[in-house]
């Protein structure tokens, strides 16, 4: 292994940071396994590419890219799409849950205010 350039050192540090933080979040049950897997892959890829820059050239040839920068950008964009989809899914689920919670809470509050179990409303004139 040749002496590492600054970009490799930064890549290695960021990769290790992803791995450690992801592991800690899963351990504290603050992150789901799917997210952990994504960051595990990204972190590992960064660490491997930083330690062995030749791997990036191999991937570049494999993907049919002409420049290493293209490979990095392409993989970055793909990752961004995956993350975007995951966030979109999460927001949709949260939005739906919020709506349901709002509905449940309002009905329970109404019952509580009237101090009754489910009974026919007595608002006949």
């Amino acid at each position: 292994m040749r002496a590492m350039r600054l970009v490799n050192v930064v890549g290695l540090a960021v990769g290790l940071y992803f791995l450690v933080q992801s592991y800690r979040l899963v351990r504290r049950r603050e992150e789901d396994v799917f997210s952990f897997l994504i960051w595990l892959i990204v972190g590992t890829a960064l660490v491997v590419v930083s330690l062995f820059p030749g791997v990036a050239d191999y991937v570049m040839t494999l993907l049919g890219m002409e420049m290493r920068a293209y490979t990095i950008f392409t993989l970055g964009i793909l990752l961004a799409y995956v993350l975007m989809f995951q966030l979109f899914r999460l927001i949709w689920r949260l939005n739906r849950s919020l709506s349901k919670l709002n509905e449940e809470l309002s009905l329970l509050k109404a019952l509580h205010e009237k101090g009754e179990a489910y009974e026919e409303p007595s608002n006949e004139p």
């Binding site: 919020l98 709506s99 709002n102 509905e103 009905l107 509050k109 109404a110 009237k114 409303p121 004139p125």
Partner: peptide, 24 residues
């Protein structure tokens, strides 16, 4: 005015209000 009132905690739109009403 004599109606039974169910109050949403958050503003979610007419559809959400109707859903609560149907459920009630």
């Amino acid at each position: 005015a004599g109606a039974v009132v169910v109050s949403h905690v958050l503003n979610r739109g007419v559809g959400a209000a109707l859903r609560t009403g149907y459920r009630y």
